[in-house]
Design a protein around this nucleic acid. Structure first.
Length: 252
DNA sequence: ATGGTAGGTTTCCTA
C-alpha cells in the first residue's frame, strides 16, 4: 500500500496539481490538509473521475482535511470524543484493515502566543485520542502536517530556529509522547538524504535556497512493515505551488 | 536585522 500526505494550501487553487500528481504517483491513499473549502463545495466529481473515493472535513477560509482513497473507507471519524474543536483538523477512516488518521496540527504562530498554547493543548488531547485508537487498531497510520520538526536534522538552520515555533522543545516533546504510544516516524526508518524537507516558506526564495523544514510526517505502528518513505519535491517546484510537498510511505 | 509571499466570502488574518 502506498500512502501520502500533502498540505495543499487551498484545494481550490491546487486541484490541478493534485489531479496531476495522482496520475503520476498513483497512491492508494492521499491525505490532504488545508483544503480551505466547505464540505458543500468540495470538488467530488473531479476526484471521482480520477479514480478516487473521497471523504472530507472542511470549513471556509481555514484548515480542512480530506482523504482520497482507491476504495471507500469505513468508520469515518471527524470529531473524536473530548476534542471539542470547531476548527476542522481531524479525519480518520479504515481501509483494507488499516486505520488512517489524517491530522492538520495547529501552527502555533509563535511560542509566546495564545495559538501556541492552543497547539499544545490540542496535541495533548490528540494524544489521548490516539491512545484509544491504538488499543483498537494494530495497523494504524497517523499522518499529516504536524507543524513540528522532530529533530534538528529536520531543520535547514537549527541555530536560527532554536526555540522558535515548529522547533521548540515543548512541541517536540508532545510529538515524542505520540510516538511513544507505539508509532514510528516512517521517514527515519530508512537512510535519507541530508537536508530532507517537506515545507519551504513562500518568502525569501526559500525553496530555491533549500531553506526548509520537515514537518509533514507519516507515523505508523510496527505491525505495518514500511518498505520505503520519501519526499517528492517536484510539486513544490511547479508554477504556483503549495508551500508543502508530498511525503510518501509504502507498506508491504 | 524581523524583512519577505501566498490564500482567502481580503483592506486583515493565518501560515
Amino acid at each position: 500500500m502506498k500512502i501520502a500526505t500533502w498540505n495543499v494550501n487551498s484545494l481550490r487553487v491546487r486541484l490541478p496539481h493534485v489531479l496531476d500528481w495522482l496520475k503520476t504517483a498513483k497512491p492508494d491513499i492521499l491525505a490532504l490538509q488545508e483544503t480551505k473549502i466547505p464540505d458543500e463545495e468540495f470538488p467530488i466529481a473531479e476526484i471521482n473521475q480520477a479514480g478516487y473515493q473521497v471523504i472530507y472535513n472542511g470549513q471556509r477560509t481555514y484548515n480542512g482535511v480530506a482523504i482520497l482513497s482507491r476504495k471507500p473507507g469505513s468508520d469515518i471519524i471527524t470529531d473524536p470524543k473530548d476534542i471539542d474543536d470547531a476548527q476542522r483538523r481531524i479525519l480518520g477512516m479504515t481501509m483494507d484493515g488499516v486505520r488512517i488518521i489524517n491530522l492538520y496540527v495547529p501552527n502555533g504562530e509563535s511560542v509566546d502566543s495564545e495559538k501556541y498554547q492552543y497547539k499544545l493543548t490540542w496535541l495533548k488531547k490528540i494524544t489521548q485520542f490516539l491512545k484509544q485508537e491504538l488499543k483498537a487498531h494494530r495497523k494504524l497510520i497517523v499522518l499529516g502536517d504536524f507543524n513540528i520538526t522532530p529533530e534538528d536534522q529536520d531543520v535547514h538552520n537549527p541555530k536560527r530556529w532554536a526555540g522558535q515555533v515548529l522547533c521548540s522543545e515543548p512541541e517536540r516533546k508532545a510529538l515524542q509522547e505520540i510516538i511513544k504510544l507505539g508509532l514510528q516516524d516512517c521517514f527515519r526508518l530508512h537512510k535519507q538524504p541530508e537536508r530532507s524537507f517537506s515545507w519551504w516558506d513562500y518568502r525569501l526564495q526559500s525553496f530555491q535556497r533549500d531553506m526548509g523544514l520537515r514537518i509533514d510526517l507519516i507515523l505508523a505502528t510496527p505491525d505495518l512493515s514500511c518498505s520505503q518513505c520519501y519526499i517528492d519535491k517536484v510539486p513544490r517546484s511547479l508554477e504556483r505551488p503549495s508551500d508543502h510537498t508530498p511525503v510518501i510511505a509504502e507498506f508491504n
